[in-house]
């Protein structure tokens, strides 16, 4: 990989222009003239006019937050969710530890063990949301589309423990059955049409 484009710090003039700022007056007389012109040319009144106009237009942009909420995009990255498999309802997480490894704020940890079905079982999973920067790497790296981002951004709590627990993130089984689990279209999701770009492995069955 070439670093040349990073080394070229000559950003050029395209798209940049000097803001029209007059020179700052040096002499007392110059300053007086500036004050006089600014006061008498009516610039001050332009400001007054603008705000007064807005007041009478009464074009209010306030969203009254707890009562009204703005819609968020489906790719929004708020508190993580743990998905289940649609068919069997089991947790998708296989405990591979990739999210733990890739996490740049080092806030994911998991404990795994060998369970009685000879599978890798995640016994504990924790995300320190106090440290999480919601970059979405964990969702992107997850090979099972198990950890994704949800839309829950209201995290205020009196206790850290309330921030997130594995059980809170996991889709409840009844919600899954009710068909409420949706695939996350953001980081890590399968790109539409990606099947076409995959070479097929021959099978002997």
């Amino acid at each position: 990989m070439s670093f040349e484009k990073f080394k070229d710090r000559n950003v050029g003039e395209d798209g940049y222009y000097m803001v029209d700022i007059e020179d700052y007056p040096e002499t007392g007389w110059g300053k007086f003239k500036q004050v006089a012109s600014r006061s008498l040319k009516g610039e001050l009144f332009v400001g007054l006019w603008v705000v007064l106009r807005e007041m009478f237009k009464f074009d209010i942009h306030t969203v009254q937050y707890p009562k009204e909420k703005l819609p968020i995009g489906p790719r929004y990255r708020a508190v993580h969710k743990m998905l289940r498999l649609f068919e069997s309802g089991t947790e998708r997480c296989i405990g591979c530890g990739l999210c733990e490894k890739i996490c740049i704020s080092d806030c994911i940890r998991m404990d795994t063990k060998y369970d009685e079905n000879s599978r890798k079982e995640v016994t504990e999973y924790s995300i320190n949301l106090g440290r999480c920067i919601f970059c979405g790497y964990c969702a992107e790296v997850c090979p099972e589309l198990a950890i994704v981002h949800g839309g829950r951004y209201e995290n205020a709590s009196e206790q850290r423990a309330h921030f997130v627990e594995f059980e809170d993130m996991l889709t409840p089984i009844d919600a899954l059955k009710a068909g409420q689990q949706e695939e996350f279209p953001g980081f890590g999701a399968i790109i539409p049409g990606s099947d076409k770009s995959v070479k097929k492995t021959p099978l002997a069955y």
Partner: peptide, 12 residues
């Protein structure tokens, strides 16, 4: 007044 001038609602 300040809220209205700034397209806000102010205390509600």
């Amino acid at each position: 007044v300040l809220a209205f001038m700034q397209r806000r609602l102010g205390p509600m």
